[in-house]
Design a protein around this nucleic acid. Structure first.
Lengths: 231, 231
DNA sequence: CGGCATCCGGGAAGATACTG
DNA sequence: CAGTATCTTCCCGGATGCCG
């Protein structure tokens, strides 16, 4: 019964591009609305249904259920039941699913050039951390070596910079050089919209944080050359 | 009047993600059905409406009209009227629009690992040429230096390989070391599905073509570990 | 023929309420 | 908390027709 559903969802989708192009096939697999954003929210580790719903503003429960089922059917997401006592169900990316990160990175970099991109909209913690991976500029970091902890809502994360590389992951903040406690949009406002550092709760090396927030330059906006109608 | 339509289409779309994440904004801009594939068809130069429709199997005229209008409104496509005598209208990518190529490349590479990817489906000439850019393996090319011409339907293209780089563009085939005349799916079948070279019409250096078709290895398929239902 | 508007049917997405 | 059921909205796709 379940296997029928798997093959049905994976192979005989109603609306598909009949195209050998890999791009078209990718869109057949993960081109549905919300699909890529669900995968984004799983990039830093397994999540529960309610967490996903809370961090995907505007998704409805039935659509989330449907997307998770389809992503599971194509082998991008697996459903895991944690062992007792915490016998809750979580969703995780498969290895192949996790390989979607370059897709998110390239899409994000392309879109930050858009004249309509608004970095002050709501933002999930995972989005922020992944954006650090995407937008990190090794040249600006130079030989900086530091770790910074983040407390965002109920979650904690750590970012390590060393030898021109950046690692961002879920984890506790003990032993980091500085700890930032703030909502994700507030941090994004400082890093990506030039808002003052004063809005953040910073513990530890404040000078380090002041430098950290300069390591993620946005590409130049495309000129507002939207073709106007000829008079 | 036109400007109203522009701001309407670009800023007040009905169904949008309220998310500062760059990926989400990219999907707001070019996440609609067919949008990326329309951009793909323009990557090798301006095209006319009927050409686009012919190379996007299954798109309907009104959807193509709508997509082109939206892509124009956001500044990704421009409409050009060629000067007389060939006073026809063509659609072209803007500079920003052309920067979508890494998106197509990354999506395509990710999807070729799919167990359901079928390289024998229909394929447009542009898709094939762009796939050469995406899948080219410099290590396999070594110090090969060659040019190959393609006659696909009514169009002609040329691929130049030198110093471990590949260039693929529209252009005539004169002066190339070999010329392949065949439909795009037939060429794709040889390069990506291991079909015999015999099916292609080859003029010039046949040994070069035999090597050329080995320069585009596909990544390993993901194991068929689609989670089965527990018995 | 090229491009666009309009109408219609089907189906996916969105919102809300409800259940184990 | 983790979904399911139901209803509405609206996008996609196909057909037709208008107009240059």
């Amino acid at each position: 019964m379940k296997s029928e559903k798997i093959t049905e969802a994976a192979t005989s989708r109603r609306r598909r591009y009949d195209d050998a192009c890999g791009t078209a096939h990718a869109l057949d697999l993960i081109g549905d609305r919300w699909a890529l954003l669900v995968m984004r929210e799983l990039l830093l580790g397994p999540r529960r249904f309610a967490e996903l719903r809370a961090d995907l503003p505007g998704i409805s429960a039935n659509v989330l259920t449907q997307r998770l089922g389809e992503l599971e059917a194509i082998g991008v997401v697996v459903r895991q039941r944690l062992p007792p006592p915490a016998a809750v169900q979580v969703y995780a990316l498969t290895d192949w699913g996790a390989e979607c990160e370059p897709i998110l990175a390239v899409l994000g970099r392309w879109a930050t050039r858009s004249p309509w991109h608004d970095p002050t909209l709501p933002l999930s913690a995972v989005s922020l951390l992944i954006s650090f991976r995407t937008m990190f500029d090794p040249a600006r970091a130079g030989d900086l070596r530091a770790t910074i902890g983040f407390r965002i809502g109920a979650g904690s994360y750590r970012v390590a910079i060393a030898a021109g590389t950046l690692a961002a992951e879920r984890g506790n903040v003990v032993g980091t050089d500085a700890v930032i406690t703030a909502p994700a949009p507030a941090i994004a406002g400082v890093v990506y919209a030039g808002q003052p550092l004063a809005g953040l709760d910073i513990a530890g090396d404040a000078a380090l944080v002041a430098r950290f927030v300069t390591l993620f330059p946005l590409p130049a906006k495309v000129g507002v050359t939207v073709p106007a109608a000829a008079p």
